[in-house]
Design a binder for these strands. Structure first.
Lengths: 348, 348
DNA sequence: GGTGTAATTTAGATCGTTCCAAATTTCAAG
DNA sequence: CTTGAAATTTGGAACGATCTAAATTACACC
């Protein structure tokens, strides 16, 4: 008799109750008699019933239990880990996540946000593509869907955010390098037109100033925020008339590239040159040399972002909240912290 | 007037047509008059209407335009890239993807599959957690939802699959190492209870046999399939009475770990010891030394899997299809291919 | 047995869309 | 003018659940 999928009505008929009762059972309502509940549940199992959330959602004012997460570069392990962190808390809260990768394309980003909206997400976590405007999120926000912006700030957007304290982290890293005896410390990698870059660069400059070191324009070398970019940047740095002896890198990917580039020039990172990364991706710990880096704990950050989002979803009316991601310097080997400080004078 | 969200009825009223007409416009039907279409579209824009796919789907027999993707370890860049590949083709086909990470947990896997099913996915791509049984996918398959299994085979499951030719890739890698003059070639890393491991190991053994080299039990050293596992495995290898001079690694993560481990013992990968990876993740190219590896092109594989899935979704009745992912050996630096073959005799 | 209250159950409207069948409009030809 | 076919539009049922308000059943107590 049953054509196609099994519905509440099929269950109701088979169990000899009304569809309303079945619905109550599905929602775990205390109103229904234990015996009835057991019978209905048995039938549900027998018929292999699958709950149709879309249908339920149509009637309910409650949330869809879907959140969206949009990242700008999933091939970067920082974002992959961020996604894992989100996934973890979102899953245990009984939600599923739409995940989309924009690859820094604003067009794609607009498309996926629109698509997710049509599918009725009850919240969105987004690490925006470069050049994202507050207006791009406007319609979402206006319709009362909570949005949490992570990693990169969006100026003027009335949404919650979770941005790590880039400036402070960079300052701490530079202070550490200065304490180690370095006088020429470079800032390597990253695209100059992003907020994250500016914050880290600002922290770098502050750190130099606090250590009484001079700023040197030529020691600030941008590049792609990738491993290849790091190779490139360090090579330009080493070609300088007065090359640096240490570098704070835009992120860990760049830092790994810098290590690669150093080896190409027969210099050993952590021995002949100090390198400090930023992010603390999972490989940082096990790399050789283990990377000294400013830990932003991507997975933890994803988790916190997800918690914030869920809180706002449950709160009904989302009150924008700006959280700062704590950062801390993790000293490992690549900065050569254990070594004789005399050695740094002119390793060149 | 308008309470809550804007619906087709609001549009219809504002445009002075019936909801049926609005529906036709939304579907781009050729039945509707150009002037009417324009008017309706204008109103849609003005009122900021958002299409409700869930509602549409309830009535339509058509697909939900949602696919699920389940991976066992998103922190591994191989899977992150796989997801990116899927995302790309899925996005351009106008679908969105649920993405879930199981972290090898069968419980989580079962939960997310059930959840995705309730949300009405029209297809699923899965890289199954270790120990997944054909029965775990049974209900999904029985309800006619196309499933594509990637990376790891599931014995006895009546679903499509896209598995790379692990055996052949491993054989080619060993052949290459043997041609370079290596006589003691190890197989490092990976968990012995997975199909992938078995296939790669089988290929390794075949390669040795074809090169006329003896099998040596002690040269097959398992470990976690991670960077840390690689460090561990190579250390055990080097501690052998008669240590290997080359290694085929279970995957690239292990290979990077092996390079790290070699450096800890003051051996330079690609100079004192040849290492070959498996997968060709994105960093393989830019690492130092650049990693010689068996390329399975994760992103391309994700793309192919997605195409296969979409094909099956459109086909109505899915006909299981087993595709083999092509692999090819990419010779770079870590195998020391450019070097004098005499050097390998006893680098120890 | 009658009564009132608490415990269960239920019919029917509803969510936002699509689809069907039928109604209406348009317009060229007789 | 009719007429009839083509073009366009439309009302109402349906999808699979929830929700409201009302109906039914159960039970304790006089």
């Amino acid at each position: 008799m049953s054509k196609g999928r099994v519905t509440v009505i099929d269950i109701a008929n088979a169990a000899g109750v009304s569809k309303s009762t079945v619905s109550l059972v599905l929602q775990g309502s205390p109103l229904v008699n234990e015996a009835t509940r057991a019978k209905v549940n048995a039938v549900i199992r027998d018929l292999g019933y699958v709950y149709n959330r879309a249908a339920a959602n149509l009637r309910q004012t409650a949330s869809s239990r879907i959140v969206g997460i949009v990242v700008n570069d999933l091939t970067n392990s920082f974002f992959a880990e961020l996604a894992v962190g989100v996934d973890q808390v979102v899953q245990s809260a009984g939600y599923v996540q739409f995940l989309a990768n924009t690859g820094e394309s604003l067009t794609r980003q607009a498309e996926v946000i629109a698509s997710m909206r049509e599918h009725g997400i009850s919240g969105l976590i987004i690490s925006p593509a470069r050049g994202t405007q507050a207006a791009d999120l406007k319609p979402l926000v206006a319709s009362g869907i909570p949005v949490v912006v992570v990693v990169r700030q969006i100026a003027g957007a009335k949404v919650s955010s979770l941005i790590s304290d880039n400036r402070d982290g960079a300052r701490a890293a530079v202070a550490h390098l200065a304490r180690l005896g370095h006088a020429r410390i470079a800032f390597l990698g990253g695209f100059p037109d992003t907020a994250v870059f500016e914050e880290r660069l600002a922290g770098y400059r502050e750190g130099l100033a606090e250590a009484g070191l001079a700023l040197a324009e030529e020691l600030e070398i941008g590049s792609a925020p990738s491993r290849a970019g790091g190779v490139d940047a360090v090579q330009r740095a080493l070609a300088l008339a007065e090359p640096p002896t240490a570098a704070l890198c835009f992120n860990d990917a760049v830092a790994f590239g810098v290590c690669d580039g150093l080896r190409m020039k027969r210099r050993e990172p952590g021995v002949d040159f100090a390198v400090v990364g930023f992010d603390d991706v999972i490989e940082a710990k096990s790399a050789v040399p283990a990377l000294t880096t400013v830990s932003v704990d991507p997975q933890g950050m994803g988790g916190r972002a997800a918690q914030l989002l869920l809180k706002q979803i449950n709160a009904g009316k989302p009150e924008p909240e700006a959280l700062a991601g704590a950062v801390r310097l993790v000293v490992r080997e690549s900065c050569g912290a254990g070594r004789n400080r005399q050695a740094w004078r002119s390793a060149v």
